[in-house]
Design a protein around this nucleic acid. Sequence first.
DNA 1: GTCTATATGCGGATAGAC
DNA 2: GTCTATCCGCATATAGAC
Lengths: 205, 205
Amino acid sequence: MSSMMSENVTAPRMKAADRRELILEAATAVFGASSYVGTTTDDVARAAGVSQPYVVRLFGTKAKLYIAVIERAYERVISAFRAVLPGLDEERVARMGAAYAGLLEERGMLPVIANSTALGGDPEIGPVAREGFNSIWRFVRDEAGFTEEDTRNFMANGMLINAIVGLRLVGAYGTDDSVTEVLDSCLPNAAAKLRDLMPAAGEAW
Amino acid sequence: MSSMMSENVTAPRMKAADRRELILEAATAVFGASSYVGTTTDDVARAAGVSQPYVVRLFGTKAKLYIAVIERAYERVISAFRAVLPGLDEERVARMGAAYAGLLEERGMLPVIANSTALGGDPEIGPVAREGFNSIWRFVRDEAGFTEEDTRNFMANGMLINAIVGLRLVGAYGTDDSVTEVLDSCLPNAAAKLRDLMPAAGEAW
DNA sequence: GTCTATATGCGGATAGAC
DNA sequence: GTCTATCCGCATATAGAC
């Protein structure tokens, strides 16, 4: 009668690289739900099904873990954009916008990016967030070939979406219909997607 | 030889309301520089020249202090917009944009707003940040009389500026000229203003 | 590779004097 | 109205077993 009922005393052995990726995914969801400050390494650990010291062991510090999370998130955005580039035509603004909206379905991805844009003042995180933002900017302008003005408008719309996501202005929290109207005019269907994906207050994503 | 050199052992007596305002101003600068998480109540206290327990005493908790700060900031944005409304004409988009940019000169005002848009997930702060954002949205649309589309574009540009401010993409941190180009195309002169106002890494504002 | 146990430090908050 | 002293909790990080 020793360990019968205790589930998950020890997570199944796994290659460190795989475990890393698993933790990064969980961490993205948790950081996305509660922001950098509001999340503890223990929250991340429990979401990933491992012990708190182990996530610290793997990533060194909480800040380094978060940095790994946002680097991965920014890369993901670019890969999503890149995927819709082939055969780029007149619709590339709409298609890339849709690609961004599609990321709403990947837990925490957009919230994490939104949050990272407010952390430029942090000496460790700031440089990484800036580089991520810049990399998207450059991609849109140089690889997708947007004009200067289209690039600005595209990024501005993205930041508006980030703010709406960061504020939890839709979903269980939404009170003002005008906001979802706006969202709809930014990216058709994004509002509906957000509504579905948003957890109730206090819930995890 | 007792208290000769000790400066400010006790802050000069003052009406609580005035002290409150003084602390709010200092707190705006400090929260703006280091974000909500990165700031301690002691940081605020020292910036305001009072003791740490006293700021807690006046505001109850750190979260309540921050809430007071962002409420004040959102009100300030609206008052700045309202000030340029009389005799509103064709230029109202440009004039309100300039009014927003003018707030760059008030320490921490824009950074605080930028940061608050990432804290929607916080059960205490979230509702206040949402209400602040909504109030600006409504003002632009209903009182300034912007069209639905102009409102969205205006807010989107504002969020882009917030992101640039939040990321510290200009000033001592700026590395990519393309970003200041963009800022200039959003709001003429804003980039130069930002450059002047941004502190070096790690410095207080 | 992963855990348990624990040290450590920091920051928010309280008590109470002046 | 404002401070000093201090408590206390919590979360990060370490040590070391398995």
